[in-house]
Nucleic acid binder design. Structure first.
Lengths: 349, 349
DNA sequence: CCATTAGGCTGTAACGATTTAGTTAGCAGC
DNA sequence: GCTGCTAACTAAATCGTTACAGCCTAATGG
């Protein structure tokens, strides 16, 4: 009895009087040895408490770990609580799981230091959202597959939606009903952090930097088409897509004097729209008579409620599935645009 | 130029004319070599595109990977979309991240086969919820730390809440107002899958098997105290804590003839309670006049809305933080009970 | 001035597997 | 009986690190 130490493939081989290669083959290449011997090795392994080749050592030797890393632009805390990124992760996990791969979660934001470390371990990378530092990407091993989600990296596959047309469509829908005071609630759109009204001082992020810029462009096209000067439409900005961060800004909007309060709010996310809805209901505003609201994303929370949110649905779960399948080589790794769907609910019929 | 192949520590050492041990020390143990040489090695490494020791090989050698595996009883798809487990994960991730560890997600349900494989890679395990197969646990390396969440494993640390008293408290609150027809909506409580009314045929899961059994016990204690015979209280069962699975059962309840429809529904989760709320509102029932509703969990979705849910709050995020800290040895690994808080909202004032 | 000590570095054996290139043994064919 | 072939197995190299034991030099202490 060698005892104490965990039993290894080598121990097992010695015990059985065969070579380590044969034991390895018993686990990995059944055709390389007689069925009888294989059976014997497997049962002995079981008996001695050997539960298969060590993943660590195997990965070192083979260069494959069956681990796919998802690198999230936001913090893990945010990403796990946000419905959109949760759905994405869920889609990814679903596909990986069926193919025997596992999911390693990394944030490019907080502890970006652990990314290069962990990077050498993963077989492939799914990058969600534009990283604060693109430098991080250059640390990833060039030979392993990489799929960008909701943005694009040169020479790599990606999955995303077409934000501008989607927002044009919902704004056009909303503007069918005459509006006196439309307004837009943006999501992280300003160069400098700004949680509130966007005034003359602020400059917007460069267009290539953000998907929300494309969403705004869609809204604005619809405004122009409806004969409204986009420059006249008041805009607010939200720094983080959470209820807590939205609240003060939405309160500022809803607590404007009646004559100034918008009667239509185009929001860049369902989270924002739901915050508007909750706070508006608390203030006794009638939806949609006093205030029409649109969101973006189509998260469950906005649909499984009364009144139901009018929004654009993007299938984040499917987006995750596609990204995962591309990484695993189950479908061609190329730039891909997904369709969106206009969901007309009760908040802006 | 050796070219093509990724550059290794050994290459770097050769290039610099020092031993591999020294290069290794430059990265890991600054005190083992002169600052000057260290500086030199580090800049040369940068120049040659060497981004630090390979995680795979390091782990094999040191036996530590800085990876913590979370094994979830439910599928990853469910766990990522469910607010309670998302919050738990988020708390775990928060702590791991600050300590330079990363998070590997595994499901004990679907592809349990990948668990033993991935298991040898992780430095520690957080197990959330009772596994379908306890056998799985025996495959985990005995010497590595393990923390159970929401249940307990002999000889291991755990974090959980006291379900019985928490449910007693909320039921007691709810029963202060006279009720003609109270009812309970359980969560996965029957031996055989049953999505609907619990009749005489069904037997409940054994008490040690499930936390929902403890919740029911709490409700029932309050019933007895209020002079209501628990056997007279109708019960329904829900198989999965999602809107889609809840819906038909809740519809069945709400569509009962007026005389039979409950006027108080004690629900075992906020998801169930929110489904009740949505469907009740759609049917024009007045909350709480026609129907009083209580939930369990205290998820954000139930609080950041109008009407606000009456429920028991458990701090799942903090639960996750605690589990992670125990795993990392930042606090004593021992059985631990967390407090809950009664949140009195509008659905059962 | 010799013995110690300490600092700074090297050589090399693991870590636990997989893989390549053999080496047998057995059997068929002529 | 010899050749050639296949099936079944083995020996040894390798994956990229880290850790341990040691070696050399310079400095310190008595």
């Amino acid at each position: 009895m060698p005892s104490s130490r965990r039993i290894t493939l080598k121990d097992l081989a010695r015990e059985l009087g065969v070579s380590t290669a044969t034991v390895s083959n018993a686990f990995n290449r059944p055709d390389q040895l007689s069925p009888k011997l294989r059976e014997h090795i497997l049962t002995e392994a079981q008996r001695l408490g050997y539960s298969g080749p060590d993943a660590q050592a195997r990965s070192l030797r083979t260069g494959r770990s069956r681990i796919i890393a998802v690198i999230l632009a936001e913090s893990l805390t945010y990403s796990l609580n946000d419905a959109v990124s949760s759905e994405l992760l869920s889609g990814i996990a679903e596909v990986l799981d069926t193919r025997g791969h596992t999911l390693l979660l990394l944030s490019g934001r907080q502890n970006a230091a652990s990314v290069p470390g962990a990077s050498s371990i993963a077989d492939g990378f799914i990058i969600y959202g534009l990283m604060p530092s693109l430098k991080l990407l250059s640390d990833l091993p060039a030979e392993r597959p990489l799929v960008a989600v909701d943005f694009s990296i040169e020479d790599h596959a990606n999955v995303h939606i077409d934000n501008e047309p989607a927002c044009y469509a919902i704004a056009r829908h909303a503007l069918k009903v005459p509006t006196r005071r439309p307004a837009v609630v943006n999501l992280r759109l300003t160069e400098q952090p700004c949680n509130g009204r966007i005034g003359d001082g602020q400059t917007l992020l460069p267009a290539e930097r953000t998907i929300t810029r494309a969403r705004l462009a869609g809204f604005q096209r619809a405004f122009v088409e409806a004969g409204i000067d986009p420059a006249e439409v008041p805009m607010w900005n939200i720094e983080e897509n959470t209820f807590d961060v939205c609240t003060p800004v939405i309160e500022e909007i809803l607590d404007l004097p009646d004559a100034e309060r918008p009667d239509l709010l185009l929001c860049m996310s369902d989270r924002i729209a739901l915050t508007v809805l909750t706070l508006a209901e608390q203030r006794g505003l009638r939806i949609p008579e006093d205030l029409r609201i649109t969101g973006f994303d189509g998260i469950a929370e906005g649909q499984y409620r009364a009144p139901q949110l009018t929004t654009v649905r993007q299938d984040s779960t499917e987006k995750g599935r596609i990204a995962a399948r591309m990484i695993l080589g189950m479908e061609p790794a190329e730039p891909r645009v997904m369709a969106t769907e206009l969901l007309i609910g009760d908040t802006c019929p």
